[in-house]
């Protein structure tokens, strides 16, 4: 059973392990520096489907199926599917769950959904309610763009702080049993909704940076760990400017993370200037975690990461009504050599 160690943090005493992961990504991600870390990639954003929404659903289903296949599991073996996406009424996750037939918890944490699902999945598994739980999320550039921004063909320039919604999906299978050769979920720090009054929808990094800083610092305070304990502190999609802001806020509060901080949004399109501040979306942190980072842990090149997915909780309606952008960040600590 887990133990509460602070206001926001719990420790998992049975340490659920990440049995397998899978990542699916589109063309812009494939041609990026981490293209080879995704299990399945596709070139055309429709991926043979009739609509972009169907393509996103297909990504999510493929990610979950691939993760299950790697672990040698069938949908019947999984007690819970925890997942969500960016679309209204989280239709990608809901419709994927319809097809897979796994008991389903639909989550909306915007781009923080991967960490949210891992955290809740670990609680379920650690609490003894499931042997296996699947955690998954997805985002698609075209579906997010039409919902949150402009039609694809509208000729409007991007602002330099804008980020590009990542077309990708990631899925992880949590298990209650497994040895220390698997990455284990050891701690989870649940974020509060933070709003610093940023209302520029093209500057999500600035809205999310304070939330990320609070969650990371809270995690370090409540676990008594130093920032250097982790090989990497991996934020979700702060982007280049958001990362700068987060590091500055942290350093003002007395925490130096410049040496080991990485941001999935910065990494995924590194070197592609068209993407301005980088990538964003649920699939950004999900595909980077379920691809590159978990692979590196399994290969032994990194041992401990703090995975901090960040999200904004506004909607086009709230933005039109002049509301500022609330943000959230959830952290889960993943460590090798801890499984039971």
């Amino acid at each position: 059973m887990g133990t509460r160690v602070g206001q926001k943090t719990v420790r998992f005493d049975k340490m659920p392990i990440i049995l397998s992961t899978a990542a699916v990504a589109g063309n812009a991600e494939k041609t990026g520096p981490y293209g080879s870390t995704f299990d399945i990639v596709f070139d055309d954003d429709l991926w043979g489907e009739k609509t972009y929404e169907l393509a996103e659903r297909k990504m999510l289903i493929k990610a979950i199926e691939t993760a299950m296949a790697k672990a040698g599991l069938k949908p019947d073996d999984i007690s819970y599917l925890l997942g969500g996406d960016l679309l209204n009424q989280i239709i990608s996750a809901g419709f994927a769950a319809r097809q897979l037939g796994i008991p389903f918890f639909g989550l909306y944490g915007a781009c923080s959904t991967m960490a949210e699902s891992l955290m809740l999945g670990a609680m379920i598994v650690d609490g003894g309610f499931a042997k296996y739980a699947a955690c998954a999320t997805s985002s698609h550039f075209a579906t997010a763009e039409r919902q949150f921004r402009n039609p694809l063909e509208l000729g409007t320039p991007k602002t330099p702080t804008s980020q590009n919604t990542v077309t990708a999906s990631g899925a992880a299978i949590l298990s209650s049993t497994g040895d220390s050769t698997y990455p284990a979920v050891t701690y989870a720090t649940t974020g509060r909704v933070i709003d610093m009054g940023i209302n520029d929808v093209n500057n999500m990094g600035a809205a999310m940076a304070p939330a990320a800083a609070e969650t990371i610092i809270s995690h370090l305070e409540e676990t008594g760990r130093k920032a250097g304990f982790y090989d990497h502190i991996v934020t979700g999609d702060l982007g280049t400017f958001g990362s700068e802001l987060m590091l500055r806020i942290a350093s003002d509060a007395g925490y130096d993370m410049t040496a080991n901080h990485l941001d999935c949004g910065v990494l995924i399109y590194q070197g592609n200037e068209l993407m301005h501040c980088g990538g964003s979306g649920c699939g950004c942190s999900a595909s980077m975690l379920c691809g590159h980072f978990i692979n590196s842990m399994n290969q032994g090149t990194i041992k401990r990461i703090l995975f901090v997915a960040t999200g904004v909780l506004h909607s086009p309606t709230s933005a039109l009504q002049g509301e500022s952008i609330p943000a959230i960040a959830h952290a889960v600590s993943l460590e090798m050599g801890c499984g039971s």
Binding site: T161, G197, P210, S218, E244, L245
Partner: peptide, 23 residues
Amino acid sequence: MDINRVLDKKNYQKYVKKNMPKS
């Protein structure tokens, strides 16, 4: 940790505006 104790809303907004990448 409470972010509101170390970060002032107005100052933060000003800082963001001043330092954000410009076109």
